[in-house]
């Protein structure tokens, strides 16, 4: 029997980008307001899982041809690397630096090395979640 999933697929195509944009918003909100790498990553991963539900593993693998285990590793490198960066300045591990910069268009923006750390968390969460989903899904 062929399952009719036109509605799910069409809705997914539209909603997917909204979710991913919102997850990026959450990610950048994270330093001073609720949000951050973990929540952002989970939401992005949820978007990709929605894509998986609407289509199938092969399609998603074609759209996102990454090895998600490597994505996890890259994320870990970002997170640990940011922490280890403090070693170069002989500061305790994980010490962060931040400054306020006046960028064109954006105005006053705070730049913080914690964002780099959070990018790592973001990638780790996506990588781990999708690895889990793929591992269970692949064997069917």
């Amino acid at each position: 029997m062929k399952i009719n999933d036109v509605i799910l697929q069409t809705a997914t195509k539209l909603v997917l980008f909204v979710i991913i944009l919102f997850s990026i918003h959450l990610f950048f909100a994270g330093h001073y307001y609720p949000g951050g790498g973990f929540i952002g990553g989970l939401m992005t991963a949820a978007a990709i899982v929605l894509l998986l539900l609407a289509f199938d593993l092969k399609t998603v693998a074609k759209i996102l041809p990454f090895d998600f285990k490597k994505v996890t590793a890259i994320g870990l490198l970002f997170a640990v690397g940011t922490g280890a960066g403090a070693l170069l300045f002989d500061a305790p591990f994980l010490t962060h630096a931040f400054t306020d910069a006046y960028l064109p268009l954006l105005g006053k923006t705070s730049l913080h090395t914690a964002v780099l750390f959070d990018i790592g968390v973001y990638l780790v969460v996506i990588g781990v979640t999708l690895t889990i989903i793929q591992t269970i899904g692949e064997s069917e």
Binding site: K69, K70, L76, V80, A84, D90, A91, F93
Partner: peptide, 22 residues
């Protein structure tokens, strides 16, 4: 060096991450 006591944790951590790629 400030971070000396961290190194026995950090060295295997970095190695573990890098090993995932190979």
């Amino acid at each position: 060096m400030t971070n000396l006591i961290l190194l026995p944790i950090l060295v295997p951590l970095l190695a573990g991450i890098i090993l995932i790629f190979f």
